[in-house]
Design a protein around this nucleic acid. Structure first.
Lengths: 205, 205
DNA sequence: ACGAAAGCATAGCAACGTTATGTATTGTGC
DNA sequence: GCACAATACATAACGTTGCTATGCTTTCGT
């Protein structure tokens, strides 16, 4: 009954915006569509305006983050896994610092709050495994551990990726997470070993 | 030899910008000077443009933060003081969430990195006192404790004030700081009591 | 006291996001 | 099949943005 929308244009624009973000070109309506063959109106038919494009970009950021977290394998050491998820989170933030900033920039609306929850779920699952493996004290709330780990990860990511701290400050992740997990009942020495092993993945990159 | 600059105009513009930030009015060059009697050019003579105004606003944010941290008294319990500084930090971020966002928004330049250092110094001093009081293990690096506390405070502030977490999540500050300070050598029970006492100040506001 | 330099008001400019308008295209009901 | 209608999309114009050019006014130094 009408001309149909081409989904390829949508992903083309999002990917181009992501590329411009990475190369630090200012993303304007006109510069975004320049050279793509599409006109400025495409942004309005696909995103309803520039605000919609930024929102889609944030969603894309959370999608990529989730994909990266999904690559972290579940090993026999759930505390290691928890730290490895934190390391992966930081790695993602440092690989795309500008996208990471956009993700937490605008005031949150309910639409993609689900995406942030999806990010949390990986942490919750790992915390649950740590508890049932006896590394954390019985009765430990996995969601609480997850949120507290996230707080540390986000604080570090935001201060290093877009803030005043230099990147060696990432090393603070080890004592911070070790202190947290130890407080949940894990043995200090064992905990430190688990966290350090997981953190090496971040240093290697 | 020339007409002299009136410093009152500068503070007037900064305060008006701060007010507009709090009331969530968009800050544009023209809306900023509207009703003040001064013209748009004033922004250029005093700040060199809108970028300069934002930079001055961030500086103002750090100044207010430093002033607030300075009101935290040094008691006989240095671990309590450390947590109290964290609570004051969070209180400031929640009282002016938009200003807090601006403070960490733009890419940092060297000019006001000193301001961020000034913020850190309060924490470093408290950590030093905690160590010499025997609450932390000998050899504990006060700067390390300070940066790690800051990471927790900023992570919490940024996720709650401008992010997806609801304000009750601020309560995570207690277990997080307790875990950190305990890992530095403080007695768990005593540490928790110190931190909780300091945190009540935040809940009361 | 006079002249040069700085403050600052006015007006104009390019670029921004958005909206209005017209044209082309395509799925749908007969 | 075919005409109709709705949607995609290009073009162009509009209001507002930050900024700069220009000229007047003020005031400090000699």
């Amino acid at each position: 009954m009408a001309r149909t929308k081409d989904p390829a244009v949508r992903t083309l624009l999002i990917e181009r915006a992501g590329r411009m973000l990475r190369t630090r070109e200012p993303i304007t309506l006109r510069s975004l569509v320049a050279g793509t063959g599409v006109s400025t109106m495409a942004v309005y038919t696909y995103f309803g305006g520039m605000d919609g494009l930024w929102k889609a970009l944030r969603q894309e950021g959370f999608t990529r983050l989730a994909a990266r977290l999904a690559t972290v394998p579940a090993t026999a050491d759930p505390v290691h896994d928890l730290a490895a998820l934190g390391a992966a989170y930081l790695g993602n933030a440092l690989d795309n610092p500008d996208l990471y900033r956009v993700m937490f920039d605008a005031t949150f609306d309910l639409e993609d709050s689900g995406a942030a929850d999806g990010t949390l779920h990986h942490l919750v699952a790992a915390a649950e495994r740590a508890e049932s493996a006896g590394r954390f004290a019985p009765g430990t709330d996995p969601l609480e551990v997850a949120v507290q780990s996230w707080t540390i990860g986000h604080g570090l990511a935001s201060l290093v990726a877009t803030g005043p701290l230099p990147s060696p400050a990432l090393a603070h992740g080890v004592p911070l997470l070790t202190a947290l997990f130890t407080s949940k009942g894990d043995t200090p020495a064992r905990c430190r070993r688990s966290v350090e092993t997981a953190w090496n993945r971040l240093a290697r990159e």
